[in-house]
Amino acid sequence: MPYDESVPPTRRRRSLLAATAFAAVCLTAAGCGAGDDSGGTRAEPGQGGSGTSAPPPSKSAPAPDRTSASPTPSSKPSKPSGPSGSTSGGATGPLSGKTVVIDPGHNPNNHLHTGEINRQVDIGTTHKECDTTGTSTNSGYAEAQFTLDVSHRLRTLLQKQGAKVVLTYDNDRAYGPCVDERARIGNEARADAVVSVHADGSAVGNRGFHVILPALVRGGKADTSKIVEPSRDLGTRIAGLFVRDTGSAPSNYIGGNSGLDIRKDLGGLNLSTVPKVFIECGNMRDPKDAALLTSAGWRQKAAQGIADGISSYLEG
């Protein structure tokens, strides 16, 4: 990425320190290279694209964790609604006064509303589907179940540090929200950081996590010029601390083992006006990664890694 003289020196120093810390941590798990803008092997995660269709949750899928499970959403179509707001729960801590928006990728009932989620929406540079169904493990554990579970755990961790946490949805709507609304929720909350939680659906043997950063995009309603650098700082910190907390290595198929990827085709990033990243926590179609993703204990580690990355970014 070209050096940007308009970025304040303090922000550049933070990014450099974060990158150095990530490289040091990453050496314990895998070699690190530079992020790329290849676009990866799958279409927009949770943002409309080809998105592998996930079947309804099967009996072989892991039972929901009772500490984070929510009621099953209605299967009736719903009108667009506001975000699932949340307060800090009265806690005080290092993140008091900060607002974090968590975006759980997809929706467990999207597959029941294909007409609604296939509707085209404007993402600035082009049009894409409102949302997608997401992927699943071979045993039927849906990505949308995974993302909600990790998001609930992440919310709890951040609230304990005093942050105000807003979820883009929380099992409170039948489908969606659409990708443009997901971005708008973060913008309207004036979030200090937004993280969209996902899991990938790639080929067997493709393993590891990667954090997706916004590319420099200007077109229509999209202008990421003000969020590219802070989002890279946020994503780099999350990547480094995700390695530390989960023991997982960066992706061996996207990002040159850096754990970072840059994309310009994601509506959730293109339309954001606040620092935002996506994280693909692993590959649901690889048996070894799937064993991690279906483990409640590992999901707690994943939430901790993301929370630690967010905290590191917000505390500077």
Rank of each mutant, 00 (worst) to 15 (best):
D223I: 03
L27D: 11
R207V: 15
I238D: 00
S70P: 02
L157M: 02
S312M: 04
R11T: 12
D180P: 10
S15N: 11
R285M: 15
A193S: 05
R184L: 11
R190V: 15
G240A: 02
P275D: 05
G220Y: 13
K59V: 15
V195Y: 08
R207P: 08
S196A: 15
T135I: 14
H210D: 00
G220L: 03
G39D: 12
G220M: 05
P287A: 02
G205A: 03
G93M: 05
R190W: 00
A174Q: 08
T67A: 09
V166F: 01
A193L: 05
T236I: 10
D265L: 02
D36V: 14
T294V: 08
P62F: 09
G85F: 14
A163N: 02
D37E: 11
G255P: 12
S84W: 13
G297N: 06
D103I: 01
I279E: 06
S75F: 11
H210C: 02
E229R: 09
A199W: 12
L216M: 14
K264H: 12
S60G: 09
E129D: 10
T294K: 00
Q161I: 03
P9R: 01
P94E: 03
T137L: 05
L157H: 01
S70A: 04
I262F: 10
A222D: 08
D36H: 09
S248V: 10
I185L: 01
S78I: 01
V121P: 14
R237K: 10
V204P: 00
S202I: 10
N109W: 13
G259Y: 03
I238S: 01
E44Y: 03
A291Y: 12
T87W: 09
G48K: 11
S151L: 01
R182P: 09
N110S: 05
A21E: 14
E188P: 03
D308C: 05
G256M: 08
S74R: 09
T20S: 09
K301N: 03
T236R: 07
Y313A: 01
V25A: 14
D172R: 00
N252P: 10
D170P: 09
A249C: 02
E116N: 05
S272Y: 09
A21V: 04
R66Q: 13
A43W: 13
G316K: 15
D308G: 00
F209E: 08
V195I: 08
L314S: 06
S78V: 13
I310Q: 04
S86G: 14
N110D: 15
G219P: 14
F22N: 12
S258P: 12
K79I: 13
G39Y: 05
E116Y: 06
I262R: 02
Y313F: 15
P64K: 08
S58A: 07
K98W: 15
T224D: 05
V101E: 04
G115Q: 07
G305Q: 08
N187A: 00
T294S: 07
